[in-house]
């Protein structure tokens, strides 16, 4: 990873999250590891059910403890979050680590003013008075670009537009200057012009405070805009990791390649069919054997001995760059070149 020279702030090691449901055990996350340094952004890409949101709820300790079996290690600034008590986590949440969600309206309380909700976190962690908290809330609203913050602080969420709600939620998440911010599809529900505003805002705030950001999205365009490093998840596992440039320019995993070539673009050729990935994402109740992508992969027959359906490929990392695939790197260079030629970048 490009950030090896910097101090690792968050470290996730071999994380496994399994839920028990009526139908059986769901292996939502199955052996995930990554590191994140301060001031850096890790983009996590994956489709619905790939385990990207579960990973981050687990980091924050927001999972249902009775139904979830967790294995592995999550170190935040050297402290293991998985062995921490609920009280210890409460002290960290909102203070040291924070999260913004996709649906801002559902994440804000309709009965309290924006100012109260931003101030609440601040008061809880700093013991500030109501007056101080209100001043802080106004300052935060100004920082995220809400016009007339001293008036809008007394508004209720329904009086804000979608983009403003998302800004208010960012203000709430950043009110205690957290060192880790987890953003779970924060722009998916927004229009492109507002999405652009929010991403610029996140980048500015990161520069100012050196926050480490985990940015979860399904949109590779957003990744290209905001991430330093990228982790591609499929079926609860990491299939590819690397810097943004490496992953987008020279993808090593057939799934990443498939995602990139299935996206329509503003500049590529038109009047030719898109290249979709066949099939649909796997059920994690009963995931495919071996490589979880093999039922949808077009290269399985190129691997000798049917290895793809019997053996799980290991994530082969050198300096934070690598992928989990049975094809040799030479094979991939050869096969992927044709697909890349039909793409435009």
């Amino acid at each position: 990873m490009t950030s090896t020279d910097q101090q690792t702030f968050l470290s996730v090691r071999d994380l496994k999250v399994h839920f028990s449901t009526e139908d059986g055990v769901v292996k939502a996350v199955d052996g995930l590891s990554f590191d994140l340094a301060k001031g850096k952004t890790l983009g996590i890409v994956g489709e619905s059910g790939s385990g990207k949101s579960v990973t981050n709820l687990t980091i924050l300790g927001l999972h249902d403890r009775d139904r979830t079996a967790i294995d592995g290690e999550i170190l935040l600034d050297g402290k293991d979050l998985l062995t921490s008590t609920e009280r210890e986590l409460e002290r960290l949440r909102g203070n040291k680590m924070s999260m913004i969600f996709q649906d801002a309206l559902a994440s804000l309380s309709p009965y309290h003013t924006i100012g109260t909700q931003i101030g609440e976190t601040y008061r809880k962690h700093t013991g500030a008075s109501k007056k101080e908290a209100r001043a802080r809330a106004i300052e935060m609203l100004r920082r995220v670009g809400i016009p007339q913050p001293d008036m809008r602080v007394d508004d209720y969420p329904h009086q804000f537009s979608g983009g403003m709600r998302q800004r208010a939620m960012i203000a709430m998440a950043l009110v205690c200057d957290p060192e880790l911010l987890i953003a779970d599809e924060p722009t998916t529900a927004l229009d492109v012009t507002v999405q652009a505003q929010i991403m610029d805002l996140l980048k500015d705030l990161q520069q100012e405070f050196g926050t480490a950001i985990i940015f979860i999205t399904h949109d590779l365009g957003v990744i290209a805009d905001i991430a330093d490093d990228v982790l591609v998840m499929y079926g609860g596992r990491c299939v590819e990791r690397g810097t943004k440039e490496e992953v987008l320019r020279t993808p090593q995993h057939p799934y990443t390649l498939g995602l990139l070539s299935s996206m329509p673009s503003l500049e590529g050729p038109v009047d030719v069919p898109l290249n979709p990935i066949p099939g649909s994402p796997p059920s994690l109740l009963n995931p495919p054997s071996g490589c979880r992508f093999h039922p949808r992969c077009t290269f399985t027959e190129k691997v000798a001995g049917g290895l793809c359906s019997t053996e799980q490929p290991l994530l082969d990392l050198i300096d934070g760059r690598g992928s989990a695939c049975h094809l040799s790197l030479e094979q991939r260079a050869e096969f992927f070149a044709d697909v890349a030629a039909s793409r435009h970048n």
Partner: peptide, 12 residues
Amino acid sequence: ALLSAVPEATAD
């Protein structure tokens, strides 16, 4: 403006 706001999946 709308066209320029679309994030494209390129690392350039």
